[in-house]
């Protein structure tokens, strides 16, 4: 019992600190990556090749005045930023970074990830509601509609590897892929589209372009975070990146074989795959324009949900035919 507890604590601390460091790096990476796409240089002055830019940003945000607007619901307003960060970090608990590096390989890991993912909408809605700002309220409204809708295809596409491997435990799903094939490789006609739907739905859950309508800054200024200053904004900002990183990690575990790969240790492969997915997310973000909210709903309910249902059926048939 105490061994398990020790293991949990040690790995939790380890993974949280690694993910937070990775987040800081991700901030830098995204700025450099975006700048390169736009024929700019990005941060160059602060630290070598601008590496210390996220540190400077954080130090600055720490020193900023903390403002709670008049007539805002102060309790909720102050509560939701840490909640957002926690909800985003929580999902990292069950991600298997290697056969041994995992904070807690739950029996129902996939269910846990989805459940925690569903919580992330609450802070966003709370922020929109409590700010006493019409733009934030509109943003919160959009976020709720979007997140609840995209839960459905997310769930359906996550069901595919679960059915194929016969387990809800992430470790087992990865092991299954390591023993046979990655699900995007075989059966690719089920795994590949399911992977696509999963990533799209994850983008939508993380409010990334082209699905970033809750904070569409050309329409809603800064959406739900319009009224947030200093560290509270930093928590939201960080939560967004943590969410993207964790989503990439979960996607890699569910479909890309997780830590499975030749030559290098499993941890390297997991980090590499996560980074790859993460880069893809930013590539999309800095290339595409934004959907309108009704088109976003249309995409979800008209395309992703029916496809998800079909894929779940196909996966079930596949398992029955080739057990």
């Amino acid at each position: 019992m105490s061994d398990g507890l020790l293991h949990g604590v040690v790995y939790s601390v380890l993974i949280v600190s690694v993910v937070l460091t990775a987040t800081a790096m991700a901030l830098w990476f995204e700025r450099k990556f975006a700048a390169r796409m736009q024929t700019r240089l990005g941060p160059t002055i602060v630290g070598p090749i601008g590496l210390l830019q996220p540190v400077a940003d954080l130090l600055k945000l720490l020193q900023k005045e903390d403002i709670v607007p008049d007539n805002a619901d102060a309790a909720i307003f102050n509560l939701v930023p840490p909640l957002a960060a926690l909800a985003a970090l929580g999902a990292a608990a069950v991600v298997p970074f290697s056969p041994s590096v995992v904070a807690s390989d739950l029996d129902v890991g996939v269910l846990y990830v989805l459940a925690i993912g569903a919580v992330t909408v609450l802070p966003i809605f709370g922020a929109g509601w409590s700010s006493n700002n019409k733009l934030a309220l509109l943003g919160g409204m959009r976020a709720v509609a979007q997140s609840i809708s995209y839960e459905v295809p997310l769930l359906l596409s996550a069901m595919v590897p679960v059915i194929l491997s016969g387990s809800l435990r992430l470790g087992t799903i990865v092991q299954m892929q390591a023993d046979h094939h990655w699900f995007v490789v075989w059966p690719f006609f089920i795994g590949l589209p399911a992977f696509g739907i999963f990533m799209l739905a994850m983008l939508a859950e993380a409010n990334r372009i082209p699905f970033d309508i809750p904070e569409a800054e050309s329409e809603l200024v800064a959406g739900v975070t319009t009224e947030y200053t200093g560290m509270k904004f930093a928590l939201f900002y960080m939560a967004e990146y943590v969410h993207t990183i964790v989503a990439s990690a979960v996607g890699a575990a569910l479909f890309l074989g997780g830590w499975d790969g030749p030559f290098f240790p499993g941890l390297h492969w997991m980090v590499l795959k996560t980074l790859l997915l993460f880069t893809a997310v930013y590539w999309v973000r800095w290339s595409l324009l934004r959907f309108r909210s009704d088109q976003l709903m249309g995409l979800c309910w008209k395309w992703l949900v029916p496809m998800g249902v079909l894929l779940v059926g196909a996966a079930a048939t596949w398992v029955v035919v080739f057990p």
């Binding site: 700025r31 990005g42 002055i45 940003d57 200024v221 800064a222 319009t226 904004f233």
Partner: peptide, 13 residues
């Protein structure tokens, strides 16, 4: 952006 200056649309940030 080279010197870390980005544009925020809201005065709060």
């Amino acid at each position: 952006d080279r010197m870390g200056t980005i544009v925020r649309a809201t005065p709060r940030q």
